[in-house]
Lab assay of single mutants.
Amino acid sequence: MTEYKLVVVGAGGVGKSALTIQLIQNHFVDEYDPTIEDSYRKQVVIDGETCLLDILDTAGQEEYSAMRDQYMRTGEGFLCVFAINNTKSFEDIHHYREQIKRVKDSEDVPMVLVGNKCDLPSRTVDTKQAQDLARSYGIPFIETSAKTRQGVDDAFYTLVREIRKHKEKMSKDGKKKKKKSKTKCVIM
């Protein structure tokens, strides 16, 4: 069974824990209790493949930012979460993405942009803004509501699919490099 290491990042209060708990335990946590770091595991079937999701729910508070490099190193894919009623959390996505790329030393890291709290009427981040940002990053965008469960499975499952595509691409690139290195030079 394939294991996928997913990391949920975003500013404090955007609903990272609520999304994760909704996926794992099928219930909505409405009281806000700032996370330092929590880890969850769940076995699911995605596109006919049974897999184990190892999900790291991270601290959004700035005082825990020193811990970010460590979990970013171990993560295979990242859910970059903002709240649709919090423009600052949307603007912060850029910083999370840049930090992930720096730590992973790669421009090509599996990510999904997630606009959470889409059940709320007080939207300050337009869907088109988020779609445009995701398009500019070359990553999928999904709106979710941890409260109603809308888009929750889709967000995590899409990230797994992005990781699969990335692994497939990397193995193809690896095979191309191996083929090239088999060419021999004969000096007579």
Score class of each variant (00 low, 15 high):
C51D: 09
I21W: 05
L56M: 09
L19V: 10
K16H: 02
P34N: 04
F28W: 10
Y64P: 05
D38T: 01
R41E: 06
Q22D: 14
Y4L: 14
A18L: 02
L53A: 14
V44Q: 14
L56Y: 03
V45P: 12
L6W: 04
P34D: 03
L6M: 13
G48C: 05
K42W: 06
V8Y: 02
A59G: 11
L19M: 12
V8E: 03
G15A: 00
P34R: 05
E62T: 09
E37Y: 03
T50D: 12
C51M: 10
E62K: 08
P34I: 04
H27A: 13
Q22P: 02
A59P: 04
Y40S: 01
T20A: 08
T2Q: 12
L6K: 01
T20R: 01
V45Q: 14
L6R: 02
V14A: 12
D47A: 09
L53P: 07
V9P: 02
T20M: 05
Q61F: 06
D38W: 00
G15E: 00
L23C: 14
D33G: 04
A11T: 08
I46S: 11
F28V: 05
I36R: 01
Y4F: 14
T35L: 01
T2A: 14
S17F: 01
L19S: 15
S17M: 02
I21S: 15
D30E: 12
E63V: 06
F28C: 06
Y40F: 03
Q22W: 10
E49R: 09
S17I: 02
I36F: 03
I24Q: 08
V44E: 13
G48E: 10
L52V: 15
V44M: 14
E37I: 03
G13H: 13
C51V: 14
V29S: 13
L23W: 14
S17R: 01
L52P: 11
Q25W: 05
A18Q: 13
I24C: 09
I21G: 13
A59L: 00
L52H: 14
V44G: 14
L6P: 03
K5D: 07
V8W: 02
G13A: 11
A11M: 14
I46D: 13
I21C: 15
E63R: 09
T20G: 05
S39K: 15
D47S: 09
K16I: 00
V7G: 04
E37F: 03
V9Y: 06
L6A: 06
D38K: 01
C51W: 13
D47K: 10
R41I: 06
F28M: 07
L52K: 15
V14G: 11
Y64M: 07
A59I: 01
T58P: 04
V7L: 06
G48N: 11
I46A: 11
V14K: 07
G15H: 00
Q43W: 05
E62L: 07
L56S: 04
V9N: 05
E62A: 08
G12I: 07
K5C: 04
T58V: 07
L52C: 15
T58Q: 02
I21D: 09
D54W: 06
D30C: 13
G60E: 02
V9K: 03
Q43T: 11
I36N: 00
Y32T: 04
V44N: 13
N26F: 06
D30L: 11
I55C: 14
D47G: 11
Q43R: 14
A11Q: 09
R41N: 08
P34S: 07
D38P: 00
I24F: 08
D30K: 13
V44F: 15
G12S: 13
G15Y: 01
Y40T: 01
T35D: 02
G12N: 07
Q25D: 08
T50E: 12
E49I: 05
D33N: 05
I46E: 10
D30W: 10
T20H: 02
R41W: 05
D33A: 04
I46F: 10
S17D: 00
E63L: 04
V7Q: 10
A59E: 03
L6D: 01
L56W: 04
E49F: 06
Q43A: 11
E63F: 05
I46V: 12
D30V: 10
L19N: 15
K16G: 05
E62P: 12
C51P: 13
I55K: 02
Y32P: 04
V29G: 10
E62N: 09
Q43M: 10
Y32Q: 04
I55R: 00
A59Q: 03
S39R: 15
Q61D: 15
V9S: 05
D57N: 01
R41S: 07
D57E: 02
